[in-house]
Design a protein around this nucleic acid. Structure first.
Lengths: 165, 165
DNA sequence: CCATGTTAATTTGATATCAAATGATTTATG
DNA sequence: CATAAATCATTTGATATCAAATTAACATGG
């Protein structure tokens, strides 16, 4: 009797997705890097994402959430949530923009700066170690490529189209 | 009176992190790509991560969770959680490995295969659109680079070292 | 055979993530 | 000016993510 193999996707399809999907490749790399930097930042009680957010607050003028979300390529609601543990710890404060009370400005606190001074040191050495671990030239290439991907506009969302009708 | 600028990290440090951190670049690109593929897969009720997981189940022998977690570069506990909504929908089943009842094999169901047939089609066109949007050669370069990053072993975790003592 | 150690997966608790709906303001229009 | 439309943020509900602690099962030494 022939054992009928259970029906699956064509093998070539599976291999194509597995080997070429940029989304999958990006998620994997992002998870690995996240764990790596989470580990070195753990002594400061920061995750890699919190670190990136805090870095972005080091500007003369406190940035509004509406600018940070696009910069981090995250949904506004994600930023709202991300800010809470940091505000709770007193590393930043959220203040309405006097010139537009819808907008909220994120101020880094002195405690936040103090913590970031140390965290930035650790970041530096951790990133140097990562660079040293990768084939020469790859870091720059990757940065460029990832930036291009992050900048690529989403495909026209096939939506009702405010233009039609 | 001199307005003393609030103390911040050195500007060059901020710019260095912002412009060179591979972790930040990866998180941003990963989020953008995730949203993009989440959008096209939404009609099937699948996220990009669920899609990748389901693709990996298209093997003659159902893979154990212990092999999938490393493949997806995710924590075992994350995989445990990720499997639940898919199992609830009947797209896969979780069965103990008869040869080692600690291990669990993930079987794709006929319903899962049927859904994936359609989803794979959509993936194909979505990915083609992405490729077309990027500078020629970049997709291949990125795949390679991301794979290298995902493969890079984590730095020796400076742990108690089971060897010492 | 049993005690010990090891490995696979899960649970728990916290943060991260997004879409959709809602609230709060501001801007534009009549 | 007053209503409508657009903008910024938040809430809600669901999945995603990991570390640490736990449970279940296998493996090994005695």
């Amino acid at each position: 009797m022939e054992e009928t193999t259970p029906e699956l996707l064509p093998r070539e399809t599976v291999l194509q997705i597995r080997d070429t999907c940029l989304c999958l490749a990006a998620q994997r790399a992002a998870r690995r890097l996240a764990r790596r930097f989470d580990a070195v930042l753990r002594p400061f009680g920061l995750t890699n994402g919190q670190f990136s957010l805090m870095v972005a607050l080091n500007q003369p003028d406190p940035p509004p959430m509406g600018r940070l979300a696009p910069f981090l390529a995250m949904d506004p609601s994600t930023l709202t949530a991300a800010v809470k543990p940091l505000a709770r710890r007193g590393l930043l404060t959220v203040e309405p923009d006097p010139d537009d009370r819808r907008s909220r400005l994120l101020h880094i606190t002195p405690e936040g700066v103090a913590l970031m001074r140390q965290a930035a040191e650790v970041w530096r050495s951790a990133h140097a170690a990562l660079d040293a671990q990768l084939p020469s030239g790859l870091p720059e290439t990757l940065r460029q490529g990832l930036a291009a991907v992050a900048a690529a506009p989403p495909p026209a969302p096939l939506n009702p189209g405010k233009d039609d009708l």
